[in-house]
């Protein structure tokens, strides 16, 4: 599943980023790496969402959410 399939209020673990180098580097630099915990705080119908990663809040668009492969967190 990708983060786009995730539910607000739930935590997930990042498995893989599947996007072009440019976006991938940006996400990695922001701390979205393999095994990082990501919590969805809030999401909209169009797929944009607010997530919490490593103590900071990020707003991400649908395309970015769709390229973050995750698994259910513990």
């Amino acid at each position: 599943m990708t983060l786009l399939d995730g539910k607000a209020g739930e935590s997930y673990k990042v498995k893989e980023l599947m996007t072009d180098e440019d976006v991938m580097r940006r996400l990695e630099v922001l701390g979205i790496n393999e095994d990082t915990n990501v919590k969805i705080l809030n999401r909209k119908r169009n797929g944009s969402m607010i997530i919490k990663v490593r103590g900071s809040r990020l707003a991400i668009g649908r395309n970015i959410a769709a390229c973050i492969e995750v698994r259910e967190g513990e």
Binding site: V23, R26, L30, S48, L58, I60, R62, N63, I64
Partner: peptide
């Protein structure tokens, strides 16, 4: 091009 939002929320 597909533009996607990425911004930190303070």
């Amino acid at each position: 091009e597909q533009r996607s939002l990425l911004i930190e929320l303070p």
